[in-house]
């Protein structure tokens, strides 16, 4: 069955993705997604009942180590990449009214 992506869905996915798409971009995104989902739906031909989802090929275990500081104070180098900084901190727009 052909997938139909509504304006509301694209709006909602845009919020999740933190992307602001223009009108033309939204139309393209709808078409792209419909086409891709139609293609992805071929997976429904496969019977996967009882198959465990495999997130990693090898067993992944938590890797623990002692919590010992090995790096020095890198705040100057880290802040050097910030688009805006103030008082030794990243500067962001006001978040609390």
């Amino acid at each position: 069955m052909a997938n139909v992506i509504s304006d509301e869905t694209i709006e909602y996915v845009g919020i999740l993705a933190k992307l602001e798409l223009s009108g033309a971009e939204k139309e393209n995104a709808k078409q792209d997604m419909e086409k891709m989902l139609d293609y992805i739906d071929t997976l429904n031909e496969l019977d996967t009942a009882g198959i465990e989802p495999m997130s990693h090929v090898f067993p992944v275990n938590n890797v623990f180590r002692e919590d010992v500081v090995t790096n020095g104070d890198g705040h100057e180098a880290a802040l050097a990449n910030a688009p805006k900084q103030k008082n030794n901190s990243f500067e962001v727009p006001k978040t609390i009214g």
Partner: peptide, 21 residues
């Protein structure tokens, strides 16, 4: 966009878990 969609509530099982299976 596609990744955000397949992970969103209501589609996660049908797309993401199906792909992992």
């Amino acid at each position: 966009m596609l990744g955000s969609f397949v992970l969103s509530s209501g589609y996660y099982d049908a797309y993401y878990l199906k792909a992992l299976r």
